[in-house]
């Protein structure tokens, strides 16, 4: 089971958490990208902060077999 927990307005768009039962290891960022597209959220993953639940960054090229939970919020605030 892989779970992504969303903060702020992302939570009002996607719900506070999305948990998925996956049959294979998937790249975490690619999976989130797919999720955003399927829910029609107009953001790319480089506009998000994706961390472990304790706030540490996820390892580079982390897969859903490496991490079970991530915390996701918008990175770019303003402009």
């Amino acid at each position: 089971m892989f779970c992504a927990y969303f903060l702020g307005n992302l939570a009002s768009q996607l719900g506070p958490a999305v948990c998925l039962e996956l049959g294979e290891c998937m790249d975490v960022l690619s999976l989130l990208d797919e999720l955003l597209r399927s829910r029609e959220v107009p953001l790319s993953v480089d506009e998000l902060l994706v961390t472990l639940p304790d706030g540490r960054p996820i390892p580079p090229r982390a897969t859903t077999c490496d991490v079970e939970e991530v915390r996701v919020l918008r990175l770019l605030r303003g402009g």
Binding site: L7, L49, T51, R56
Partner: peptide
């Protein structure tokens, strides 16, 4: 969390551009 104004106060006090900031850790 980084959603909070506490985070903005931190970025403006450390002093860092929010566009180059990364996660708190």
């Amino acid at each position: 969390s980084e959603e909070s104004e506490v985070w903005s106060a931190f970025l403006d006090s450390a002093v860092v551009c929010s566009f180059t900031s990364v996660e708190e850790d």
